[in-house]
């Protein structure tokens, strides 16, 4: 447990000291800042564009707070998930490439603890960065619009975090299995595309993590969403990925 704590602390310190600080947290804060602004100015931009073409009339509804949150959630599902997939693909692979895993794993840090530390630190970093990005988005939205839909937005972000946790666990598994960031990221992107495709099929969507991809927007629209299956399968797959990563890494020759 001592070695696990020391290694998790190293992971956090590494985030602060390297490019990692500017990727996931940086992207989330950037999106938190820009989403309300984009929601506010997009109608004006569209009207200005239409004004340059005689005869073209674009009816754009007046933007509301919900538009900013929908914008942020859309970016979470696409941009941020892709960033998570690519960066977390290096979780184990980068240590292997640099040979740092050898000096860590010949000390009382077990391989299981190594994988768990990678997963836990990844999820914690994501949770903190998401909370900060979402908070920035809320502040910007309240300033530019009003304080409506904050609770639904928070719930939607929570659901996204569950999905991102599953992708983090999946990428640790793929990184441990392939020991190559590129291969792991490629496989992760394939899963991400497959999940998006599944949202087009109601039966698959309602009984798999794909359901979480559309749930956020539904919550913001004030509709009821059945979350048991999507959330349950997401967390179950995350747990299976962690167990799989531990099992795969135990057998790896370093």
């Amino acid at each position: 447990m001592t070695a696990f704590r020391a290694f998790v602390a190293k992971e956090f310190r590494e985030t602060r000291k390297t490019w990692r600080l500017w990727v996931v947290p940086g992207v989330l804060v950037f999106l938190g800042l820009t989403s309300p602004v984009l929601a506010a100015v997009t109608p004006a931009l569209l009207r200005a564009t239409a004004g340059q073409s005689p005869g073209v009339v674009i009816e754009v509804p007046t933007p509301v707070a919900r538009d900013a949150y929908v914008q942020f959630l859309g970016d979470l599902m696409q941009i941020v998930l892709l960033v998570v997939i690519i960066t977390t693909g290096a979780a184990v692979a980068a240590e292997r490439r640099a040979g740092t895993d050898v000096l860590m794993l010949t000390k009382p840090l077990t391989r299981d603890a190594f994988i768990l530390a990678k997963t836990v630190s990844g999820v914690m970093l994501l949770a903190v960065a998401t909370a900060i990005g979402a908070a920035v988005c809320v502040v910007g939205t309240v300033l530019l619009f009003d304080a409506s839909h904050v609770a639904a937005f928070a719930a939607s972000v929570g659901l996204w975090l569950a999905l991102a946790t599953m992708f983090t666990a999946l990428m640790v598994l793929l990184s441990a299995a392939t020991l190559r960031q590129g291969s792991a990221a490629g496989a992760g992107v394939t899963v991400w595309v497959a999940l998006f495709a599944m949202t087009a099929f109601p039966l698959l969507r309602d009984h798999s993590p794909a359901g979480l991809m559309a749930a956020g927007d539904e919550l913001l629209m004030g509709r009821d969403v059945a979350l048991a299956w999507p959330l349950g399968t997401t967390l179950a797959i995350a747990a299976l990925c962690v167990a799989g990563a531990v099992a795969v890494f135990r057998r790896k020759e370093l």
Partner: peptide, 26 residues
């Protein structure tokens, strides 16, 4: 254990690395 080509975290100082190594041993 010292491997033939040891790999270190490039962002650390020697003191950082030795401290981390010691903490892994409790």
């Amino acid at each position: 254990y010292l491997p033939d080509v040891p790999g270190f975290y490039k962002w650390m100082t020697a003191e950082n690395f030795l401290t981390l190594s010691g903490r892994l041993f409790g």
